[in-house]
Nucleic acid binder design. Structure first.
Lengths: 138, 138
DNA sequence: TGTACTATTGATAACGAATCTCATTACCGT
DNA sequence: ACGGTAATGAGATTCGTTATCAATAGTACA
């Protein structure tokens, strides 16, 4: 509870923020690191992890667990609670707001005597383009 | 859709199924393995992982990702789609059915041209008992 | 019941994501 | 420019999970 530890502005943080913003869907820390390196940045992997964790805490990035357990990140509008509709083939992501779901989560928790409910709500599917492709239609 | 490779009945699978059923909340593969070993079973870790994965595929177990990335499992009623309300302090878990959420997920996907929607919906909170405890009330 | 076939098992190696270490770097207030 | 110190990053480390592969044991069939 001391004064907030001063945070410094480094080109690495900027690079991560930019790279995140330049991406449509969710990306892994490793993937983002690879992308950055390919674009000539000598940024380190650990730094990417740290920057992403910070962005997530500050509310500038959303994070979720991919189906195989790795953390994925995506730039998002700060301070706004929302969920995601994600194409599991191409990664296309749509932010969705759903007051109904918020209220549902709240009420379900209350009904069972639970307090301080937090919820994980994400929808994975195949976007229109990917649905049209053969091989994924099964 | 080839012929299902014949599946054999081993005491190991039974043991995992039983141990899972004897547990109230979600458990990790490692935790379940430890429990089994403590109760005298010489079952191997890899086998526990395989059995749990199979149970999950067959619909006899639900799985979710814990907050720190590990997979947790829990016995559930087969063939029935449901979600969970989980106490993040004591692990108490309540199965919840929510047609409204199912329909919502389906419609949100459709609205955006997504097909084959699957969703992750879990609510984490503090159960009544844990809510009453000091220290978690913050 | 015996036997052949082969799925299953399990100790351990391998893998991979994420974190930690710590000397070095470089941001920032002065 | 200088000094204090947060941030960096290469590599080591941790830890959950999966692959390897010889040995085992379940199952069908005679």
């Amino acid at each position: 509870m001391t004064s907030s530890p001063r945070k410094r502005n480094t080109w690495q943080r900027e690079a991560v923020r930019d790279a995140l913003g330049a991406n449509d869907g969710f990306v892994s820390a490793q993937g983002l690191h690879a992308t950055l390196r390919e674009s000539g940045s000598p940024i380190g992997l650990a730094t990417v992890y740290r920057a992403l964790a910070d962005l997530a805490v500050e509310g500038e990035a959303d994070s979720l667990q991919s189906l195989d357990g790795e953390s994925l990140f995506r730039a998002c509008t700060p301070g706004q609670h929302h969920h995601h509709l994600i194409c599991r083939s191409c990664g296309l992501t749509v932010e969705i707001e759903a007051d109904a779901v918020e209220r549902w989560a709240q009420s379900v928790a209350s009904e069972h005597g639970f307090t301080q409910p937090r919820h994980v709500v994400d929808v994975f599917g195949l976007c229109a383009a990917c649905s049209a492709l053969p091989g994924d239609g099964g």
